[in-house]
Design a protein around this nucleic acid. Structure first.
Lengths: 155, 155
DNA sequence: TGCTCCATGTCAGTAGCCTGACATAGAGTG
DNA sequence: CACTCTATGTCAGGCTACTGACATGGAGCA
């Protein structure tokens, strides 16, 4: 029952997972009253910042598969939060846009999520926040670069 | 199709999610050939470092619910990777331990996962890795502290 | 034009995890 | 001993996201 003083707490990977888990839990807690999931919020936020994104692009931005995003988008269409043309204007890409309802819901969610991020960063000064951004970006790039080199051959 | 140069890349929360997603994907890639999931690996790693942990303790350490961990533990028991006493020696707690098979499987998985973490940290020097640990710990603590203050009333 | 390659959208089936709820065992209190 | 509180293990049901597979549309090349 004691705090696990094991060396897991000395692993960046474990800490990264713990931090992500804590952030996700905190986000779910504030989004649940709004009837939203984290992926749902991410989708709307992406559309607010880049209107007309396709389903596949939204999936990549929200870190889920395009199949999962497709299911979500159908649901959001039914709920009138987003709109997609019935037929693709060019190719197969269906550009998605927020409705007024979607924008209104996003406004509430965005405020709640921003508050969570503020809480998360409350113990860090400006320089430390910049360091966090830089370190995380470096880690992401290293993982992606090596995945390209090791995994899927050629690219 | 261009890289999203939006300010999402300036959000620690978004970067945290991206890094965690990339790490999880990289871990899944190396664990799949071994027939393991990330939670499965986490469970075995926890048991190696702290033999005799209960299901609930394992769940907390792997950041899943005790129900999910219970399902996993039954599966691992069937596969002979862990053992639990038929009856609780004290209270309801069922202390879990690795079998030799579990230890052997973990050895392979642990090496693969360590390699992933090495790759992730390849762009950071010693000081930057220490900073990453400290920053992540601070963020986790801030989220937990405020969750206790805001969410579940009283403590 | 015809061919290859890639990306997108979609359908079907599966797996992992979650919430809700219940009974039980121990600690603390009177 | 009786009561309360907490933590654990468990069952039931549902949701989210995933893997696998397929057809279509556009870009590049001969």
């Amino acid at each position: 029952m004691e705090q696990p003083g094991v060396d897991l707490d000395a692993s960046v990977g474990y800490l990264l997972k713990e931090a992500s888990s804590a952030l996700r839990a905190a986000m779910e807690e504030v989004l649940r009253p709004l009837g939203m999931t984290v992926t749902h919020y991410s989708c709307l936020e992406l559309l607010a910042q880049r209107p007309g994104l396709s389903g596949s692009e939204l999936a990549r931005g929200a870190f889920v598969t395009r199949q999962s995003m497709n299911v979500l988008l159908r649901s959001l269409e039914d709920q009138g939060q987003v709109t997609r043309p019935a037929a693709a204007p060019v190719g197969k890409v269906l550009p998605t846009r927020l409705t007024d309802d979607g924008r209104a819901l996003l406004a509430q969610a965005s405020a709640a999520v921003r508050a969570v991020e503020v809480r998360m960063l409350s113990g860090l000064d400006e320089g430390e926040r910049a360091s966090a951004l830089r370190l995380l970006r470096t880690m992401v790039r290293s993982l992606h670069d090596d995945a390209r080199a090791d995994g899927p051959p050629g690219g």
